[in-house]
Simulated scan of single mutants.
Amino acid sequence: MNFELSEEQRMIANAARDIAKDFPPEYWREKEENGEFAEEFFKAISDAGFMGIVIPEEYGGGGYGMTELLIAMEELAANGCGMAGVWYMVLTEVFGALTIVRHGTEEHKEKYLPKIAKGEMEFCMALTEPDAGTNTLAIRTTAVKDGDEWVINGNKIFISGADRAKGMLIIARTTPREKAEKKTHGISLFLADLPNDAVKVNPIPKHGINYSKTCEVSFNNLRLPENALIPPLDGGWYHLLDTLNPERMSFTTAAIGISRLAISKAVEYSKQRKVFADPIGSYQGLQFPLAEAYATLECAELMNFKAATLFDQGAHYREVGAAANMAKAVAVEAGIKAVYWAMQTFGGYGYAKEYDVERWWREINLIRLAPVTQQMALNFIAEHILGMPKSYRT
């Protein structure tokens, strides 16, 4: 095992840190409070080539893998951007670029990848439904063939970036569940161009991350050309897992990056703030929980890079999923502890917006719920790694 970054990986990390300097916490505080998309940030990461990290060079990208994408994400998050350092890249580069690179047709690659790499096309993924959250196999959105077109109908929820995206990855049933050969059969993936009058988008007011909108989406006889299908027909479930595992790794990276940022600010403040003549950073009541969280986060980072390495090497989706789920389960618990104690370090100021830690607290708590709950990550570990009986039905 080699724990050293390559020269190219160090360059990516350094470039991410340089970008983050131009978008400090106060920038994101303003964007969050005003509910504004960070246009300047999106342009900066696009100009730096970050939106094309996983895109092959022949389509205008960098030709790197998931490992390099995680490096860029973590450094952006940890050096001032918080969740935003991961969020924008997940929506377009994981849901759009990575899915198309690994499973799209040559026509899909030529159409979408150069635009994504240049930052000219934002993407989103329409997966979650009101009655089918974690249980993706229960989705009700349908795609029915009508001549040489697909007609899509259904409702999706919590679709981030749908208000701005020019491209959408849609997950739909092409064979009804009751007629499918097995429960994972009958799900297909489609690529759609937006905006489209048949796609209605309604933003949902939410607790945090308001520099990006999360939306309800409805499809009312959305017609797509035959070649909008990412093959194979009815066999999209396993391709979808190839998107969900990187999404999981990305959110783990967000937990690590947010926590690194919160801890660094807490440590800085603890050296300056004195009570009874001593800096509060000298109190073991603050030292121990922050140190323990940091140590655990370092371990989670190693497991997350293992997941990325397995993914880049083409390992089986279940082997990748095992590492990704373990990394997330550990990173989230450590991250919540890290940001909690960072807030405690600031005392009353931790509750004040001007110190930003309250925003990171809201961001880290999302990762308990998305893209998979802690409980479902633990279910995966118990069933697929420990070999215990399945604890739920699909």
Rank of each mutant, 00 (worst) to 15 (best):
N202M: 15
P203E: 05
P203I: 14
K206L: 15
H207C: 05
H207R: 14
G208W: 10
G208T: 15
I209D: 11
I209E: 13
N210F: 07
Y211W: 14
S212E: 12
S212R: 10
K213D: 06
K213Y: 07
K213V: 06
T214C: 03
T214M: 13
C215M: 03
V217E: 03
V217F: 06
S218M: 09
F219E: 02
N220I: 15
N221R: 14
L224K: 04
L224M: 02
P225W: 09
E226S: 05
N227P: 00
N227Y: 08
A228D: 00
L229Q: 07
L229T: 00
P231M: 06
P231E: 05
P231R: 08
P232R: 11
L233Y: 03
L233D: 01
G236M: 11
G236V: 09
D242H: 14
D242V: 12
T243W: 07
P246V: 07
P246T: 03
E247A: 13
T252W: 04
T253W: 04
A254E: 04
A254G: 04
A254H: 02
A255I: 10
I256N: 04
G257M: 10
I258M: 08
I258P: 01
I258K: 07
S259G: 06
S259E: 02
R260K: 15
R260D: 00
